[in-house]
Structure formats: structure tokens, C-alpha cells
Design a binder for these strands. Structure first.
Lengths: 218, 218
DNA sequence: TAGATTGTTAATCGATTAACAATC
DNA sequence: TAGATTGTTAATCGATTAACAATC
């Protein structure tokens, strides 16, 4: 039936945001047409992979020219959330949480942070960017009132699972997990982990693997 | 020859930090032995995959018991960087950069942030955590003096490539890229991207794919 | 001993790439 | 027309999983 979408393979899901980033960059530079070869080069895959990936996106290319840049951007945005803004709350008003709230590019790209919460009574009421830190007790009502879909977890490791449970109970459908914790969530809730420590470790692993292991004196 | 390491497949490189996280968590809970089944459960893969992965790590399991927890942690740490601390500098002393500098867990896990730099003369000299913001001109000397291996990019998108070039010229071997930029680097330099915006978009894509596409009124 | 778990080989699965007809 | 690029089918490649002998 029209509009029915089959599940997209996970590697494709991870590349779609990257295609969008590249397309927006090229459009800023005035490009009207973007070929699969150009996208392939930018992402480090083959043009074949790009064309396969874009078959999961509602856009048509043209022979000899490639994909119309604007339509491609629109289609990618659509695939990423209808192009409509999604509402987001941040839980945890520490260093990281505050940095997220103040980070302008999220808004520019359709993620509206509309609330920030913290369990610590001493930071409740504090101003962060354009928001005021609210107590956890206000979370459920806020999520419902604003139709918040995404919760960003910027809390310490040990508090993460409890906060995740509260966010899910409040009704969010997706969690961006910036704590170090491994979260257990019901299947309907989607989680994306963005752990800087794991990324650092991955980098460290790559450095080790790429020979010349530093001092290397035994 | 002894100790020669063959290249580890990328998916394994990405899982090794996660194994370490889980092992450390279980050790804190007092576990002495950890089986491949337990690790599999935690990471959402099969025990078969775990055993394959751990064949890339210098550790031996025991039948009927699994892997000795302490040795497994040590072996994973070794694979991740000899267990020795790695020195890190942060470039960009904005919201994100300051949050990184103040983030304690990095140090606890062997990543010592020993410098923070910014191009903006107005923030140079400012105190962030235990550090003082330095001008970009001091970067090269600092990297050499302290043997800094990793640079964290917490600068705006448009400055990212130039800063990456400066870090590489200064001698870092790995970059953790927290800017939105796609970086071009020489092959010997390793880059791991940790873009929160891309993660948010990935989450958004998952929410879309998992039906019930929000308002959904046409 | 019986049972549980590793380490490894072989089979499966799925993603990536190649190839090419169709198109402009 | 000749050349370039898509969309798609088929082939390849590599990662994951299954299976099982070896071990404690």
C-alpha cells in the first residue's frame, strides 16, 4: 500500500543522517545536482551503495545528472522525521546537559529542546540558555503538554536507568543516551547511545592497532 | 612473530569498548568470572560472536567457568591502549569544550585532558576546571612537550578542518571529532566521529521507521 | 561422571560491490 | 550520437551464527 515502509537495514539508518549533512553542505555551496559518486566519495562507500541506500528514500535520480539537490534534501529530511521539528527534553543540568541546552545547531536542524530537568533541588530554578531547570516531578506533565518525543540523558551513570524509566513512563518514544549506562527499555522505545567515552576508547583501539604503539618499550 | 597483531575488523573495534564497560560494571558487582553468554546478553549479540571477538584479545577462557574477570578487564584495557593513560587536548572552550574538560570520568578511565585551547582571545586565560585556556599558538609546543596523542575537536563546524590540520601538524595521532564537520586527514591519522546531531537524526529515523509516525495527519 | 563452557571450523546470513541495461 | 548516470539484478565479500569436539 502507498507509503508503507519496509524496515531499513541498520547500516542504512546510520548513513542517512550523514547523507543529509553532506547534501546540506553541498547545497550551501550552490550545488543543484548531486551524483551518487559525490556522496560515495564523501562517506567513503561506493556509488553502488549510495544508490542502494537512496532506494530507501523517496527520491528519483536522473540519468546523466544525478539527484536534484533540493528534493534529495527534502526526501532525506522526510525520512528523518517528516521535516517537522521534534520536541526534546534534556535530563541532567550538569556540564553536559547545559552544553546541550545551549547548543544552537539542534534547533536549526529541527530538534527543539523545550525543557531541562534535574533531580538536584539546588539547580532547579537555575536559568540555562532560554530555559529554567525544572524538578523531575514536573517531567510527566511537561512531556504530555508539549508532545515531547525524545529525551536526552545527560545524567551520571548510576542515575541513568531510573531516569530512563521516568522518561519512558512520561511517554517519550526515543532516548539519546549520553550517560555511560547500558539501558534496558521496552522494545517500542528506541535508544541511540552516544557515549563519548566509548568513542575515545574506540579511537584508542585504532591507535593501538595502527602499529607504532607509542613508547613501545616493551 | 610474537605480538604481531592482525587488523581487527571494524565491528569488533567498536564492541571492545563496550565489553570493557560491561566487565568493569560486573567487577564492581563482585563477579570473578564472566561467561561469553553474559557478555552476549549485555551487548545484544550471540555468545558465538563474543568468543570470536575475544579471540582478538589476549585472554584465555576456562571451560565451565568463562573468563576470569580481572584478567579479561586487563586484556581489554591492553587492547585499548596498553592500560597506560593517553594524553588528550581539547580545542574549543565553548559550552561543549568546557563540559568535556570538566568531565571527570575521562580521567578515571585513562584519558588525561592536559590542555584546552581556543582561538578566541577573549576566552584565553579563562579557568576551566583545573586548566587554563591557552591560545592556539601554544598548541604545537604543548603537544610535543606532553606527548599528546589525541585531540578533541569541540569547535564550530566552519573552524573544524583548520583546527584538525593544526592538531595534526602539532603531532596528534587521533582525533575525536565532536564538530559537525567531515574531516579530511592523512591516512595515518585516525578519526572517530561523535556527532550528537547525527545520533539525534539516527534516533529520529528509527522513530519514523517504527510506524505510528507521530501526528500522522497526512 | 555429567554438565557447562570454551575455541574453532563450517554454514548462514546480510551488506557491499560489480556489472549492465535503460535512460537522458 | 556518444557519454554519463541511474536503478536493479547478480556476485562477492565479510560478519555473524551454529555446531561440535575438547576440556575441566
Amino acid at each position: 500500500m502507498a507509503g508503507a515502509r519496509k524496515a531499513i537495514p541498520a547500516p542504512v539508518v546510520r548513513r542517512i543522517p550523514k547523507y543529509l549533512t553532506v547534501v546540506q553542505e553541498l547545497r550551501r555551496q550552490g550545488e543543484q545536482w548531486i551524483s551518487s559518486a559525490v556522496l560515495a566519495e564523501a562517506l567513503g562507500v561506493t556509488s553502488s551503495t549510495v544508490r542502494q541506500d537512496l532506494s530507501h528514500v523517496e527520491v528519483s535520480g536522473f540519468s546523466k545528472r544525478g539527484y536534484p539537490a533540493q528534493r534529495l534534501e527534502e526526501a532525506l529530511l522526510r525520512r528523518l522525521g517528516g521535516g517537522l521539528p521534534r520536541r526534546v527534553v534534556v535530563v541532567g543540568a550538569g556540564n553536559l546537559g547545559c552544553a546541550l541546552v545551549r547548543h544552537e545547531p539542534f534547533r536549526e536542524h529541527g530538534f527543539h529542546i523545550c525543557g531541562v530537568f534535574d533531580a538536584n533541588a539546588r539547580v532547579v530554578g537555575k536559568r540555562v540558555g532560554r530555559l529554567v531547570v525544572q524538578p523531575m516531578s514536573a517531567l510527566g506533565g511537561w512531556v504530555k503538554r508539549w508532545g515531547v518525543e525524545i529525551g536526552m540523558l545527560a545524567v551520571p551513570l548510576r542515575a541513568a536507568q531510573e531516569v530512563a524509566d521516568q522518561l519512558i513512563a512520561a511517554g517519550v518514544r526515543g532516548l539519546l543516551n549520553l550517560s555511560g549506562a547500558r539501558l534496558r527499555v521496552p522494545e517500542r522505545v528506541k535508544v541511540v547511545d552516544a557515549r563519548v567515552l566509548d568513542s575515545l576508547r574506540e579511537l584508542s583501539c585504532l591507535l593501538c592497532a595502527s602499529g607504532a604503539a607509542r613508547g613501545d618499550r616493551k
